[in-house]
Design a protein around this nucleic acid. Structure first.
Lengths: 343, 343
DNA sequence: CAAATATCTTTACGCGCGTAAACTTTTGAT
DNA sequence: ATCAAAAGTTTACGCGCGTAAAGATATTTG
């Protein structure tokens, strides 16, 4: 880097020997200028420490190259994982992802959407809180910003929804469990934060009916996003009271299962599908930690890659198409049963 | 919200009956205008959907109200947790946190710092990759942006460092373990990504020497940020080969321990401090999941709140002080031993 | 109530860049 | 060499807001 500080594009254009409008074009798309001029600009870039002022760039732009990514709870490894994949793909496509977590709070979700609007993002990938979301705020937001919902659907919001097929999750686990042993009871929170939980319960009920089996839904108390602790407390109570209707427990999601398994361990209940075990536990999500539980957790896996790939792809199509689709589409990816040791 | 869309501050000033410069002052600091005019502006805000264009606002500003938060790996719940606390405090202080994850990659860390510079943030909280970081890139970055390092120190970089006192972690675990049973061997990755790992090993060695005990450091193979799997594979090998020198294992960090515990479970080794157990396992960090391992993990806990509080506080002081401290300060918070069932 | 402030209005300019229009130079295929 | 197309240059304006300066108005003070 040479001495003279470059203060703006004007000065940079001067030292690179190219006119400012052409330099401007270059920064927009390096391939839009002749290779020889591109070389000259890039040569100058190596000598002078200049980068365009992003605020000035975006000021006149109707849309920026930013993409907002909003998840309900980033401390949940599931969302951390999917955010990681989404971020990478945005970067690879030349966009700047901006990551936000609602931390499970409606007011924060609203604030984030509010702030996002003033950033004029090209598009937004939104995994809403679900039950905790402010419908009207999201609706208003979607009117102004091209938005694709993922993970958790809210009817009619956004231009598209991409998620996992809860029925596929539950039908596979229920089918497997009831084929290989006692049919499962269903273990869930009484007031789930996420609409997927309701879909899973309904899927459980309809599957059991289809198989001609009696359903048992166990609802445990607890609110918030500390699912593991909720699952653990619920598990401890159930085990102490001997209140389990079957020897097979299907948890609504892996985080509950992680807590439930720790309760089993604490109370000396052996979990697994071998002879010496008295309980089988399975679940849904394939949480990043579920292969390290004790025993490792049999679960139905999200197709993380498919959900993140297709969400990003859909958003790009939406952006290219001017921010509107003719009709809202729902895309659900099936689960894949992952057999481990717990059931 | 009324019909006519407000396109800029000029128009908004018109409908609110206040001059544009005064409106501008208001948005800068609502208390800087007379209460009566403030009311008039806020009344207009309720009727018209206007918010200042953040790009135009920041264009002339030397510094923005943005704060960059960069962590090495957001899918690690430890960082997710600390990022969560930092974000909240920035918001409460009236700043806009922008969260980035390096995903364990040097190139990405560099790209993030590069992009951050052009955003002219008021300050940056940076948890560097550590061993994988590009020293010169970080050095260059810190020259231009007020930066506070946290979690992982890089000598001389940034205006301050806030982290946990690794010696405090290890001395407490080693002291406890050797007082209550066989002295521990130390379980770590051969090529740790993070400089804290080295400090912990050295602390282990010096503690063992001080106690007149023979140290055993077990180094396992594996690279990257999939610590749990690395710990599991390493654990399986050790257990199968019967290569453990003692019946007490002190893992460098909780994520390795989580993997190691799952290996123990798989091989039927009972872990805990009760009679029926053949192995004790302890660790460091108090990872959000460590209370749900089987058995729950005895560990030395970060003072998450202190680290995040003080990091943010330090950055604010730095910002107020014009971006430079007279001298770089290191602040280390002690650990707190958390006794659970694994040791 | 007059003077002293505090606050607001008017006017005007600049920030760094996008971008349109008219013109000139290069390029590359004939 | 010729000429149309491609690419670059010049010139000029606008975006939305920060902000300075000078004058007008409102509020506080004695």
């Amino acid at each position: 880097m040479d001495e003279p500080k470059i203060r703006n594009m004007e000065e940079f254009a001067a030292v690179s020997g190219i006119s400012r409008p052409t330099v401007s074009k270059y920064f927009h798309d390096p391939d839009s200028v002749r290779p020889s001029t591109r070389e000259r600009i890039e040569a100058a870039l190596e000598h002078y420490d200049y980068r365009p002022n992003i605020y000035a760039i975006n000021q006149n732009r109707r849309l920026t190259k930013n993409i907002g990514v909003v998840v309900p709870y980033l401390a949940d490894p599931f969302f951390a994982e999917i955010a990681r994949m989404i971020e990478r793909q945005c970067i690879d496509a030349g966009y700047s992802p901006l990551l936000f977590s609602s931390h499970g709070e409606r007011t924060l979700e609203n604030d984030i959407l509010d702030g996002l609007r003033s950033m004029k993002p090209a598009g937004v990938l939104l995994a809403p809180l679900g039950r905790g979301s402010d419908r009207s705020a999201i609706e208003e937001f979607c009117k102004h910003v091209p938005t694709v919902l993922f993970d958790s659907n809210i009817e009619g919001m956004g231009e598209a929804f991409i998620g996992s097929d809860n029925y596929s999750f539950v039908s596979q686990t229920v089918e497997y469990l009831s084929r290989t042993g006692e049919p499962p009871c269903f273990f869930e929170m009484r007031h789930p934060a996420n609409p997927n939980a309701n879909k899973r319960r309904n899927a459980y009920l309809s599957m059991m009916e289809r198989l001609g089996l009696e359903p048992h839904v166990i609802k445990i108390e607890g609110i918030g996003w500390g699912f593991e602790e909720i699952g653990r407390q619920g598990g401890l109570r159930l085990l102490q009271e001997g209140a389990l209707p079957t020897d097979t427990v299907l948890c609504s999601n892996d985080r509950l299962a992680i807590g439930f398994l720790s309760a089993c361990y604490e109370t000396g209940v052996r979990v697994g599908r071998t002879k010496d075990c008295s309980l089988r536990v399975a679940s849904h999500d394939d949480h990043p930690f579920s292969r390290f539980t004790c025993p490792s957790l049999t679960t139905a896996a999200h197709d993380y890659a498919a959900v993140s790939d297709y969400s990003v792809e859909t958003l790009f199509k939406l952006i290219e198409g001017g921010g509107r689709f003719d009709e809202r589409s729902d895309t659900l990816f099936p689960a894949k049963l992952v057999l481990r040791d717990s059931a």
